[in-house]
């Protein structure tokens, strides 16, 4: 499961929905894996405003990854400066180092094994082979 997904995931239990501590889920005993994919600059630009940067920093520090900058990058930071488009000519935008790093963290770093714990109720969701188990027993739905 990508770290990008972890940035959107909350606890599935109904009583946790109203509590702010049900997001983010905290990874425990996580085993990470890097799965390389092609960089997708338009997607990164699209998803950037929806990221919760502070929570992403919390998760990366909990996982022991290199620390992220305190402020979220802007859309302009993702594009390599220079290469001004000549008149009437479209130059394809090149991803900057920031974009490459962000791509590495969000889309290539995946949680392979481990647990995700809710900060509110403490429920632990198991992750096996990169697939988290979000099935709940009937009384918690």
């Amino acid at each position: 499961m990508k770290l990008l997904t972890l940035n959107f995931l909350t606890c599935a239990i109904k009583t946790c929905k109203t509590s702010p501590s049900s997001f983010p889920l905290h990874p425990r005993d996580a085993e990470l894996e890097i799965l390389e994919t092609d960089i997708n600059l338009p997607f990164l630009k699209n998803i950037l405003p929806r990221l919760m940067w502070d929570e992403l920093r919390t998760i990366t520090s909990e996982l022991g990854l290199p620390e992220l900058p305190p402020a979220a990058p802007t859309r302009e930071d993702l594009v390599e400066p220079g290469a001004q488009a000549a008149e009437g000519e479209e130059v394809e935008e090149q991803p900057s180092q920031t974009a490459k790093d962000l791509h590495r963290v969000l889309l290539e770093t995946t949680v392979k094994e481990g647990k995700l714990a809710c900060g509110n109720c403490g429920h632990e969701y198991k992750v096996m082979e990169g697939v988290p188990n979000f099935l709940l027993p009937g009384h918690l739905v």
Partner: peptide, 16 residues
């Protein structure tokens, strides 16, 4: 390429 979850849609959608 997508992320997979084992979950029941009838129990809700656990995303913010």
């Amino acid at each position: 390429e997508g992320d997979l979850f084992l979950a029941d849609a009838g129990q809700g959608v656990p995303f913010r």
